[in-house]
């Protein structure tokens, strides 16, 4: 009521406040609109640029997008009786891909545990070297798997080992960063307790820190495993064994082997979905219903 009576008087009351507020809102809206405009322009110009650099145009290709899947499915359907045999034939390759992912996750995680403990404040063995270990992890994380894989394929020849080393290297860096964030939240009391009874650094870390953070480690490790299955399939395509390599062979053969390609697609898709579900189930259990 009081405002209503005060409103007609100019110069005081809520009018200037309202004007100021409206100006503020307008300015905010203007900035927001400009940001949006710049973003839209960036997307559009980027899109046209990428389109012009592409071998085939976007609009020409759009209606052909289903041609290839239709071709593959058609051929697979024609030879549907061969499908079980193909699935059995390529199953070992799938196992190899999963093995690559599993080993590289394991090895990478072990390396990551050491690196992360060495680079966490309060836990580090050599506190002065924390920045060094952090930079090492940054570099390891930045290396795309394909770089190491290609170099190692040149030296070691094709096969699962180059892919394994390449993925493990990147995994160590990526997990190391996440692990060291987990470590920072660990309670230092068990560590101090162990120190008071004369435990050395390795014992303090293994018995004092790792049991506290193991569920988080495991959860991040499972997530990495999912990512690494995809990575190891891709690396197979550039020459490091497993199902990606079989896929490349079937694809470069072209028509006539599309039924094999379909079988490989099916296996890879199935494996990714299954491991995604399993790992997210366990991760949910670890984070929510966890044994903590």
């Amino acid at each position: 009521m009081a405002e209503l009576t005060a409103a007609p008087h100019p110069g005081n009351g809520i009018d200037p406040i309202r004007a100021e507020y409206m100006a503020l809102t307008r300015r905010k809206r203007l900035y927001g609109g400009l940001t949006l405009l710049v973003f839209v322009l960036l997307m559009l110009s980027g899109f046209t640029l990428a389109d012009s650099r592409n071998a085939g145009g976007f609009w020409d290709g759009l209606h052909r997008i289903f041609d290839f899947p239709a071709q593959v499915l058609g051929e697979a359907w024609d030879k549907i009786d061969l499908m079980p045999a193909h699935l059995v034939k390529f199953f070992p390759a799938l196992i190899e891909t999963i093995n690559i992912a599993a080993v590289s996750t394991l090895v990478g995680a072990m390396l990551a545990i050491v690196l992360s403990l060495l680079s966490t404040r309060g836990l580090a063995r050599f506190p002065a070297l924390i920045p060094l270990f952090r930079r090492i992890m940054d570099v390891m994380r930045a290396v795309p798997e394909i770089v190491i894989a290609l170099v190692l394929i040149f030296i070691l020849g094709g096969g699962p080992v180059p892919a394994m080393i390449a993925i493990a290297f990147h995994t160590a860096g990526a997990l190391g960063k996440l692990f060291s964030e987990v470590n920072e939240n660990a309670s230092l009391k068990p560590v101090e307790g162990l120190e008071s009874v004369g435990a050395n650094w390795t014992q303090r870390m293994l018995l004092g820190v790792v049991p506290q953070v193991a569920p988080n480690y495991l959860s991040y490790g499972l997530l990495r495993f999912e990512i690494n299955i995809r990575a190891s399939a891709i690396l197979g395509f550039v020459g490091a064994g497993g199902i990606g390599y079989e896929l490349k062979n079937a694809m470069s053969w072209g028509q006539g082997k599309f039924d094999e390609a379909a079988a490989i697609f099916l296996l890879l898709f199935g494996a990714i979905v299954v491991f995604d579900q399993v790992s997210s189930h366990f991760r949910n259990k670890l984070t929510h219903g966890g044994g903590a």
């Binding site: 640029l49 976007f58 290839f68």
Partner: peptide, 9 residues
């Protein structure tokens, strides 16, 4: 297969 090699793909 649809768009050919390039950044758009």
């Amino acid at each position: 297969r649809a768009f050919g090699p390039g950044p758009m793909t």
